Amino acid sequence: MSGIAVTLKKHRGLSIGLLAWLVGIVFFLPIAWMALTSFHSEADAATNPPSFAASLTLDGYRQFFGAGGGASPWPALINSAVASVFSTVCVLLLALPAAYALSIRRVKKWTDVLFFFLSTKMLPVVAGLLPIYLFAKNTGMLDNIWYLVILYTSMNLPIAVWMMQSFLAEVPVAVIEAAQIDGARLPTILARVVAPIALPGIAATGLICFIFSWNELLFARVLTGVVAETAPVFLTGFITSQGLFLAKVCAASLVVSLPVLAAGFAAQDKLVQGLSLGAVK
């Protein structure tokens, strides 16, 4: 019976592995198809059924980067990078002490505080669009990239505190108490004791906040114009009344997605470690 059980366990593990590969391939296929289409001409990209053996060209990328006299994407890409990076840094700087107060040195009714943070994400984004727009208009902050930094920071802070609270709960209290005995104050404890131990969780939180900020479209579309236009807003400009230029859109989408893919690939080890913190007690 034990041999049969081992065989069944191996077959079950093999089936789960094959299913995982199948799911991964299904999710990867649209990205691969977008990448392949970006190297086709517009005529080949518009064929139905699609032609896999069509000749490859870089015309879509040349047009995206303004070779045909179009607008340059670099200002929009730089704006997205500034808004995403600065807002993520601000979120981490604010979320770390907040999570410390909710996990290690817990304040009274800390569960209610966590629920309040989570409840702020239940409000539909479009419900807050009008007051945010009116505030920006009355304060002269329309088409200002730093207003997006503040906005993205406030949008991502609740989920960052919620995530980092669970990560910091895994930090040994004895290590913090030893640092306090040695005379370390709170900023030193957060920077030199808590942060290095919870680095995988901090990296995972930072990556998720960066992705959320980079992909945000609604507020950037309404609150920006020419000066503070972000990459997703720039990307929507390729859908015109003249039609959808598929190869050019795929090339633009791939370029805009590269920073997120590169950040995820660079931090994949920390991301896996961070997301697995607290899973095993």
Score class of each variant (00 low, 15 high):
163 M>P: 08
58 L>T: 09
101 A>Y: 06
106 R>N: 04
176 I>C: 02
185 R>N: 12
105 R>D: 12
196 P>A: 06
255 V>H: 10
83 A>S: 14
66 G>S: 04
268 Q>L: 07
28 F>E: 01
157 L>R: 09
50 P>T: 09
5 A>I: 13
191 A>T: 11
242 Q>G: 15
145 I>G: 00
1 M>W: 11
196 P>D: 07
232 P>Y: 13
164 M>A: 09
37 T>F: 03
167 F>W: 11
213 S>T: 01
4 I>N: 10
37 T>P: 06
251 A>F: 05
140 G>P: 02
95 A>Y: 07
203 A>L: 10
157 L>P: 10
83 A>Y: 01
173 V>K: 15
281 K>L: 02
39 F>T: 03
265 F>W: 13
40 H>F: 13
273 Q>H: 04
41 S>N: 12
180 Q>D: 11
246 L>V: 11
225 G>P: 01
132 I>G: 08
136 A>M: 07
271 L>C: 00
119 S>K: 05
54 A>G: 11
69 G>S: 04
270 K>G: 04
199 L>H: 06
275 L>R: 00
185 R>M: 11
280 V>A: 14
50 P>N: 06
45 A>P: 09
185 R>A: 14
268 Q>C: 03
14 L>G: 02
271 L>T: 04
69 G>Q: 04
130 L>D: 00
103 S>T: 15
37 T>C: 08
256 V>H: 01
